[in-house]
């Protein structure tokens, strides 16, 4: 496990059920290979993502957070993603005040058919987080 832990960073993804989770499924069905660092949490809508979740994740051990929803104007719930966009954009600007590099947080819009775009997004974001390195000191000593 320690070997695995050394190679991977912790990336949390919040994906809306209707578009991006489906997009990630489409990428899977198409066998689009991706880095394995990402852990996905399914939410009904990107508008359900409380910026607090992202802050908590980053403060508690995540090295990066990715949020993805339906394309603007194509939200399953009419305009949940517009609320998300406003909140997440605000959060992006606030993160440096918490001492967190804003590049550790990324939000995007991916539809259920865009498996290729999902693969690209995960690959790029994982690469970016790896370039930034771990956010937290490794707890090596804990038994």
């Amino acid at each position: 496990m320690s070997d695995v832990a050394a190679r991977e960073l912790r990336i949390v993804g919040f994906l809306c059920n209707w578009c991006s989770y489906g997009g990630a499924d489409t990428a899977g069905v198409s066998r689009f290979k991706q880095p394995t660092d990402l852990r996905i949490i399914r939410v009904p809508c990107s508008g359900r993502v409380d910026p607090l979740f992202i802050v908590k994740a980053l403060l508690n051990g995540a090295d990066g957070v990715l949020v993805s929803g339906c394309h603007p104007r194509d939200c399953h719930y009419t305009d949940g993603n517009f609320y998300a966009r406003r909140r997440l954009e605000m959060l992006k600007r606030l993160l440096p005040f918490l001492g967190i590099d804003e590049r550790r947080f990324h939000y995007t819009w991916i539809s259920a058919s865009e498996g290729g775009k999902w693969q690209q997004t995960v690959t790029d974001f994982t690469k970016r987080v790896h370039e930034l390195g771990p956010l937290h000191a490794k707890k090596e000593a804990t038994p």
């Binding site: 912790r10 949390v12 852990r39 949490i41 939410v43 359900r48 409380d50 979740f53 908590k56 994740a57 508690n60 051990g61 995540a62």
Partner: peptide
């Protein structure tokens, strides 16, 4: 949702 976040981050 926080239970899921913590399951990833706090271990």
């Amino acid at each position: 949702l926080l239970a899921e976040v913590n399951a990833i981050c706090l271990t």
